[in-house]
Simulated assay, not measured.
Amino acid sequence: MPKAAVRRVDWRSGLGDFSDCLLAGLLVALASVPVVTAPAGFVAGCRALDRARHGIVRPLWTTFWADFRQAARGGVPFGAVVVVAAVLVAVDLEVTRSMPGAGVLGPVLQVLAAVGAVIAVRTCEVVAATELAWRRAVVAAARETVGAPGKALLVAVAVALSAVLVWMLPVLVLVVAGPLCLAAVATGARR
Results as ranks from 00 to 15, higher is better:
Ala133Gly: 15
Val127Ala: 15
Leu132Ala: 11
Ala71Gly: 00
Val115Asp: 02
Ala120Lys: 02
Ile119Cys: 12
Gly103Asn: 07
Ala80Tyr: 08
Ala72Ile: 06
Gly106Met: 15
Gly79Ser: 11
Gly79Asn: 11
Cys124Tyr: 10
Leu105His: 10
Thr63Ile: 09
Thr123Ile: 06
Ala137Gly: 04
Ala102Tyr: 10
Phe68Pro: 04
Leu132Gly: 01
Arg97His: 12
Asp92Ser: 13
Trp134Ser: 05
Ala120Gln: 09
Ala137His: 00
Ala137Phe: 11
Val115Phe: 10
Ile119Lys: 06
Arg69Leu: 11
Ala90Trp: 14
Val115Thr: 02
Arg122Lys: 02
Ile119Gln: 10
Ala72Pro: 13
Gln110Leu: 07
Ala114Leu: 14
Val118His: 04
Val82Ala: 15
Glu125Thr: 12
Ala114Phe: 07
Ala128Leu: 06
Glu94Cys: 07
Ala86Ile: 01
Arg122Asn: 04
Phe78Glu: 07
Leu60Glu: 09
Thr96Phe: 13
Ala66Pro: 00
Ala142Trp: 13
Leu105Phe: 12
Pro77Asn: 03
Glu94Phe: 15
Thr63Trp: 11
Gly103Ile: 00
Leu132Ser: 01
Ala90Met: 13
Val81Pro: 06
Phe68Asp: 12
Ala117Cys: 12
Leu112Glu: 03
Val127Glu: 01
Arg73Asn: 01
Ala129Gly: 03
Arg73Thr: 10
Arg73Met: 00
Pro107Gln: 06
Gln110Asp: 09
Arg97Ala: 14
Arg69Phe: 10
Ala71Glu: 08
Ile119Pro: 03
Val76Tyr: 05
Ala102Glu: 02
Gln70Ala: 12
Leu60Trp: 03
Gly79Ile: 05
Phe78His: 02
Arg136Val: 01
Val95Pro: 09
Arg69Asn: 10
Glu94Val: 11
Thr130Ala: 14
Pro100Gly: 12
